[in-house]
């Protein structure tokens, strides 16, 4: 790989993010995103727009900040159950690269235990990464679930 992006560094960031989500630690997770960072989970395969079509999630920093506080609030009925996840990320590939930015796709499986039920999620991540003040950060993450258009149950945490 050429340029300033090192695959090991990229993978380390993806694993760090997965680790925050495994522990449902949104305080640490949000620090991995740039101030203009966004998180998107479309409801259709190949969905083009997060704002002209309904999505399962589309959060910018403002909604991430609200969600982070909500996750830690003692009075959210859906957060009364522990959320335990185990993410596995593989097939990490850099698909676009510029001087201080790159786009990375990967496959993921996430096993989630929540409210006495174990659920398997899987699909593809697309991360847009950018180097800011010497640190690789996430500017955009797109999560394409393979069953995004199924009648899913509640999604309590980012995947």
């Amino acid at each position: 790989m050429s340029g300033s992006m090192d695959i090991a560094e990229i993978e380390r960031l993806l694993y760090d993010e997965a680790d925050c989500l495994d522990r449902a630690d949104l305080d640490a997770w949000i620090e991995l995103y740039t101030d203009d960072g966004t998180y998107w989970m479309p409801v259709m395969p190949d969905q083009e727009s997060p704002v002209d079509h309904i999505s399962l999630f589309y959060d910018d920093r403002v909604l991430m900040e609200v969600r982070r506080r909500n996750m830690n609030h003692p009075r959210s009925p859906s957060k009364e159950y522990p959320i335990r996840c185990s993410h596995i990320i593989a097939n990490v590939r850099v698909t676009e690269e510029a001087a201080d930015a790159c786009t990375v796709t990967s496959n993921f499986h996430c096993l989630m235990f929540y409210n006495d039920k174990q659920t398997m999620f899987g699909g593809r991540y697309t991360h847009e990464l950018v180097r800011q003040q010497d640190r690789l950060m996430i500017r955009h993450k797109r999560v394409d679930l393979i069953n995004c258009d199924a009648a899913l149950n509640s999604l309590i945490i980012y995947l």
């Binding site: 989970m41 309904i54 999505s55 399962l56 999630f57 609200v66 969600r67 909500n70 959210s76 009925p77 859906s78 009364e80 899913l152 149950n153 509640s154 999604l155 309590i156």
Partner: peptide, 12 residues
Amino acid sequence: ANGSMVGPDDLT
């Protein structure tokens, strides 16, 4: 939405 901060609390 399934991923909202309102619907899942109702559903619970």
